[in-house]
């Protein structure tokens, strides 16, 4: 019995050391381009690190029992252990403490961070409808619309440009059913609810584009009907000067007439 406890303890420590090394170094995260994304990836990493000892404890005890406590003949019965006061109370204390820890960090702390700064350098209005996005930059009088009929391939849609190094406020709403505005590279999403304006603040940090990785895209993330999978737009994140150029280009196009919807793709800054 004592030998079993010591062995399981050793195996658990060993497995946990290996596991912690793996989850803290393993790079399973797609490219990211926002301060919020760094915090969210860090939250996921922290949760993985907290999960390792728990996962390992259960698995080590299970595997050790499977290996060590086999019945050798039909008549054998196990030790009649009904309960173990220290172990059960200890289990309750440890699991409660763990729940409290992960509630505080990354949960509460991370959420406070995401909600801490309701200011922005740039405001973008997003209106979702079956099955397209209508994006407006009210400060510049520029607006983009993905193809009104769904099922367009993402490359056929206009590009949503964002400036690196700026804090952006998205004001999101919907014309018909519930949609969800998600840019995986920013790790942020918020639902587009008809009759309600939801907001999302993101501090953009890096440049990037859909050509580099598909996480640089707007994706509807709430089932909204037939065109749902293709309710997408490419995203490009530009240096602020490039972004200003892009805006000027868009303004020129708008001045030339709004009927050139098919031409909006020229807005791609790359």
């Amino acid at each position: 019995m004592r030998r079993d406890v010591v062995l399981v303890g050793l195996l658990w420590v060993l497995a946990t050391l290996v596991g912690e090394y793996v989850v803290s170094t393993l790079d399973i995260y797609p490219p990211k381009a926002a301060l919020e994304a760094e915090h969210i990836d860090q939250a996921i990493r922290t949760l993985l690190m907290l999960a390792v000892p728990v996962f390992n404890f259960v698995v080590v005890v299970m595997l050790y029992s499977i290996w060590r406590f086999r019945a050798r003949d039909e008549a054998e019965v196990g030790e009649p252990i009904y309960t173990h006061r220290t172990f059960t109370v200890g289990w309750l204390v440890v699991t409660s403490a763990l729940a409290a820890v992960l509630f505080y960090n990354p949960g509460y702390v991370g959420w406070k961070f995401l909600k801490s700064n309701p200011t922005a350098d740039l405001e973008i209005q997003v209106t979702a409808a079956q099955w397209h996005w209508h994006i407006t930059y009210p400060d510049y009088g520029v607006s983009l619309k993905s193809r009104p009929i769904g099922f367009a391939r993402i490359e056929e849609n206009p590009v949503l440009a964002l400036p690196a190094g700026k804090r952006v406020k998205f004001e999101v709403t919907s014309d018909d059913v519930i949609h969800s505005f998600w840019i995986p590279a920013l790790r942020m999403k918020v639902d587009a609810v008809p009759g309600v304006v939801t907001t999302m603040y993101v501090t953009i940090t890096e440049t990037g584009s859909y050509e580099e990785d598909a996480v640089f895209r707007v994706q509807c993330a709430e089932l909204c009907g037939t065109g749902h999978p293709r309710m997408t737009m490419p995203v490009v994140i530009l240096e602020p000067e490039e972004f200003e150029d892009w805006i000027k280009q868009q303004q020129m196009q708008e001045a030339m007439g709004g009927s050139m919807e098919g031409m909006e793709k020229q807005g791609d800054g790359h």
Partner: peptide
Amino acid sequence: SISVPTGLIFLSALGTLWQGKL
């Protein structure tokens, strides 16, 4: 916090395996 009562199921399961004749 619902992970705490759920954890008790695992407590019971692991304790049952321990020193059993599987």
